[in-house]
Every structure is written in C-alpha cells, then in structure tokens.
Design a protein around this nucleic acid. Structure first.
Lengths: 222, 222
DNA sequence: ATAATATTTTAGAGTAATCTAAATTAATTA
DNA sequence: TAATTAATTTAGATTACTCTAAAATATTAT
C-alpha cells in the first residue's frame, strides 16, 4: 500500500503540520529528511496522487484525513517499539530512536496490537510523547514548557521537545526524566535560569534554553 | 553493507547449499524466491563482486565463508524473532514466518543480542530449527525423519522440514509439535503408514508422506 | 512596481531492483 | 556426434527513488 519511503515523508509532513495552520513547505520537508527539494517535489506528486496530501505547486502541502491516519499509525508503531526497547530490552531512552525508525515499518497490524497488549497499553513513549490508539486518536497531553514554570508550584516532567541523544543524556544526568517531580526554588530575573528542587531535597540548575525544551505538567496529589 | 534483497538472496543460497555438495543453480534460486532467472543472474554478479559467493557463469554458485556468516546472522535474527512472536506475543507457530521475514532485516546487532538474552538464549525456534549463535555456529541437531522411526523406541518430535502454514496447522491438530514424546505402535508394511502413541495413551495415524516431513530424536530419560 | 533574491519545479541522468524476449551455452537424446 | 531441448545470460525496458543544474515562480526590498 505505502512504501517505507512514503511513510517517512508522511510522518515528516505530519510532524511539521501539527500546531501550524499554514501549509508545509517543500524546503521544510527536504530539511527534515535531509534530502533535496527536487526529490520532495517528486514525492509530493505521488502522495497527492494517492490522496494522502493536498498539494498545489509552489504553495506547499496540507496532509489529508487519510494521510494523517497513515502517519499516526506509523507514529503509533514507532512509539510502541520505543517502549518495548526501553522497558523490555532495557535500552536507554537516548538509544531507541534509530531502531524504532526501522521497526516502525514492519507492517503487521496484528503484531502492533499484540505488542501494545504485551506492554500493558502504554499511553506515552519513553520521551513522554503520547501513543496514538488504533483509531489514530491522541490523548491531549496538556503539557507546557518548563520555561513557563513558577515558584511555589509542584510539577512533573512529562516529556521533551528536543529528542537528540545528546540532550537526552544531559537530562538523564540532571535527573529530569518523564515522571520526575520537582518544584522551582528560584528563577533568576536576568537570564531566567532556574534552580529546581526534587522530592529528595537535592536540586539542579537549568538554563532557560534547556528549560524551553523540557515539558511538564502541574502536579496535583490525587 | 548489505540490502534486504541481497540478504534474501544469500539466505536462499545458504538454504539451498546446506547438505548439497554441488553448486546451487540459478533456476533453483529463482524458484525459491519466485523471481526470474534473469534477475537472479544480475544479483549473482553483484554478490560475487562483494565476495559473498563464488560464481562462474553457467556453472552455478557456492557461498563463501563471508557469505555464510551473513546468511547465518540473518537466520539467527529470523529465528529469534519467531521465538519472540510465539513465546512472548503468543502467536501460533504457523503465523510467525511472514512477520519474522520483515523483522530479520532490522539491522541492530545490539538489538538482536538483547532480544536473545530476554528470551533466555533459546537454542531452537518454534519449528525446532536451531538458532545460530553470535559467531554463526549451529548446534548439530542430530534429528532424523519420522519416516525412519521403529517400533519399541521412544522418540521426541524435534522439528519439521515443511514449514508451510497448512502443514503446521495439520501437525498442531495431530498434536505433533516439537517437544512432544511418542512411540510407534505399528508400521503398515504396504504403505508405511504409522500409528503413533503419545504419553497419555492417546494416538494418531500418520501417512508416510507426512512422516517424511517430521523430524525427531531418540528420547533417552536423563 | 520593478529588480533582486529565494524557493520550487522541471529536465535529464543515475542506482537498485525488476521484467520479457532474444541470444548463448550446456545437457540430452537420437 | 549432431541435433534437439533445457538452462542461463544478455539486451533493453520499467519502477521507485535519488541527484544536480537549469528554468519557472514567488517573495522581498528598494
């Protein structure tokens, strides 16, 4: 039905679309897949032919319902395999992306749904990104950036917006993985750097640039 | 290094080689991969160029040490994924082949070795085929065909030589999966059909044609 | 509003895999 | 051994994806 290459283009278009009302540009897709704009144009014609995107030349693309369904199913597979790799095979969260990029193209739907069941129907992947359900529905995460945190509130790390291995290793070292509880002791008024306090009263210092790429939620005792 | 297509050719050549001293013929490979002889010839040139096979035109091919190493590493992955699919995700043994055909091309060696450890270092796949170790070593199975079984001996089913879903479902129905213990109550002298007796004193009838495709070992109480 | 710049598309070609049909080589049989 | 048949290889095309360089279109800046 769809080749892995088509799937990768759709995934990229989906990610570039989400939260951006304007059409996605050829050059953005080319950058995100590190390929040439000429190749992208070719593929856009093919995807448009299959009604997976709406494409008007020189005007960029919008993903269709149908294309979104395909993209979300690949994203579902990717994130479920990431959970498998960290929770079952004990890989670190900064190691799993490349492997999941390959595994996500294994086509059996039955395999994915059994994997989901075996993993206990996880809601998020190791980076805190939500896992779409079989129908392509995504739980709204309600996350905000750590850069918006205030003192005298309790928060929980819920994800990251930079998925690079280096960034993830840095957060690991700082103890800032999804699930971790913290409060903000102090925010520097000049450079907006923060001192975070953990449950065990240890703490760590975080720059504003780093904070912008960490996602969190208000934590309420339930 | 090697594409999945190359890997599939190497696997096929390896399987056709094993136990046959003569070179493998172009047409045999074409049959086993359901492709044209012309395509096979093209690929043989490429594999020969990479020193994965020894190829002399019109004379067939022999796999090299290097080619065998690659083939065995793919077979190792295939069989480990089959164990994962049956033992962990609870698929039936007649369902796992197609999925393993895709999973075997996922390239991470670290993934394979962690999967191996997670599965408890299995020695055989769900069909009784031995799993090569990291160095490409295969345990000699010491299996023989059920067609050679004699009365007044205790045997254990150790594998199959026909891997088709239909055959596997038939054996499932008959209760003849790897591991099952049985003895031969009677062999018909005309058509060589057999009546097998299980541990629980139930029994089943097996034709000679079927028996030829079932592998077994002498069972000795240890 | 027109010129300069940036982006996108087309044109033409390359690689990896595939096919059919024709030509070549090997094997079989008379 | 020569002729027929079978197997294999070559030739020429096709599909999916890729590229660079040139042409077309859009954006921006004066």
């Amino acid at each position: 039905m769809t080749t892995s290459t088509e799937e990768n283009y759709l995934k990229s278009i989906y990610h570039l679309s989400v939260g951006h009302p304007n059409p996605v540009l050829t050059s953005e897709i080319a950058d995100s897949l590190t390929t040439s704009s000429a190749s992208v144009t070719d593929m856009l014609k093919k995807l448009s032919e299959k009604n997976l995107i709406e494409y008007e030349r020189y005007k960029g693309v919008r993903i269709t319902r149908k294309g979104e369904r395909v993209a979300l199913s690949i994203i579902r597979r990717h994130r479920l395999w990431e959970v498998f790799l960290t929770d079952v095979l004990k890989f670190r969260w900064d190691e799993v992306h490349e492997m999941a990029e390959e595994l996500e193209h294994v086509s059996s739907d039955e395999l994915v749904s059994r994997l989901d069941a075996f993993l206990g129907y996880p809601k998020v992947d190791p980076h805190g990104d939500p896992i779409p359900d079989t129908n392509g529905k995504l739980f709204p995460s309600g996350s905000l950036s750590l850069a918006e945190a205030q003192t005298a509130q309790k928060y929980q790390v819920s994800g990251v917006s930079d998925h690079s291995a280096g960034f993830l290793q840095f957060l690991q070292k700082k103890g800032l993985m999804p699930g971790v509880l913290f409060s903000v002791k102090e925010i520097d008024e000049f450079d907006k750097s923060m001192y975070l306090l953990f449950e065990d009263n240890s703490g760590t210092f975080i720059s504003h640039e780093i904070a912008k790429n960490i996602l969190m939620k208000l934590y309420v005792n339930s």
